[in-house]
Design a protein around this nucleic acid. Structure first.
Lengths: 144, 144
DNA sequence: ATAATAAAGGATAAAAAGGTCTTAATATAT
DNA sequence: ATATATTAAGACCTTTTTATCCTTTATTAT
């Protein structure tokens, strides 16, 4: 579904959001420990999120990553997926045809349509804020 | 969504089914031309489908691949996906957690559930036969 | 200023996916 | 029997993805 990079990105964003709600900034090391991801690789992913203004990075002592509280509810899953995996999940044909459209559909086109739409609307609806709440309340988990 | 191998496999199976309905056996070369796929790689995929008794292969002159007419309606998309990609699409956690369950869900677990179920039921419901009909009638396409 | 801390960036490596090629095996027709 | 057509199988190559390591840059505290 998502690339590994994207999986780490989503997990990291949820964790960072949770900490930012408590005004805590978190380090790469702390993040990759909490979400159980390879540290150096996670660094690359966080860079991408930072470049896309999804998180903020601060260098130096007491530096790390955080997320703007006001933005938090506005940042949707789709923003993260788009920043890391691009639009392949929304655009591509299920059977890999270069040209697949209403007019010239692949055999699965119609069958996939509702699934694709449900997925897209889900990604575009759910905010990082919302997801971090469940985590804070101990209802959901980010590792193992 | 699916691997390239799986995309080719599904496309090939649909094409083979359509030809088999007209009692035509088709060669690797013919298949990869019709579904616009790399020939040698497609050969590997067809081998997998043959080993899983989804298609039948015949060596020698006038050989090629075909599909049992009686079986055709019984073979579902899920059979092909399972033969090539395994169960990752059904089983895996959306965020890549090794352990993700109702009891210990990732933040996306519930959100994904209905999508996953819809996808699974779609794959388990749709037969290769059904898909090859649309192709025969010129309503759907397998290349470009 | 200096030292310490943390992310950024670039080079590289390992693994997986995607794809090719060559030879062997098997069936058919002559 | 022999030549030919066709898939099977295994070795190999290429690209992409995933992952690591090392150096540089920025920030802070002393």
């Amino acid at each position: 579904m998502f690339s590994k990079a994207c999986e780490y990105g989503i997990r990291a964003a949820i964790y960072i959001a949770g900490q930012s709600m408590q005004d805590k900034r978190v380090s790469l090391k702390g993040i990759s420990k909490k979400i159980d991801s390879p540290e150096a690789f996670t660094a690359k992913v966080l860079q991408m999120l930072a470049k896309n203004n999804i998180i903020k990075s601060v260098k130096g002592p007491n530096g790390g990553f955080d997320m703007d509280k006001k933005q938090m509810a506005k940042i949707k899953l789709s923003d993260i997926v788009y920043a890391i995996d691009g639009d392949s999940i929304y655009r591509g044909c299920g059977l890999g045809l270069k040209e697949c459209s209403e007019k010239r559909p692949c055999p699965l086109h119609d069958k996939f349509k509702s699934i694709r739409e449900e997925l897209t609307s889900m990604l575009e609806t759910i905010s990082i804020y919302e997801l971090s709440i469940g985590l804070k309340d101990g209802l959901t988990f980010l590792r193992r």
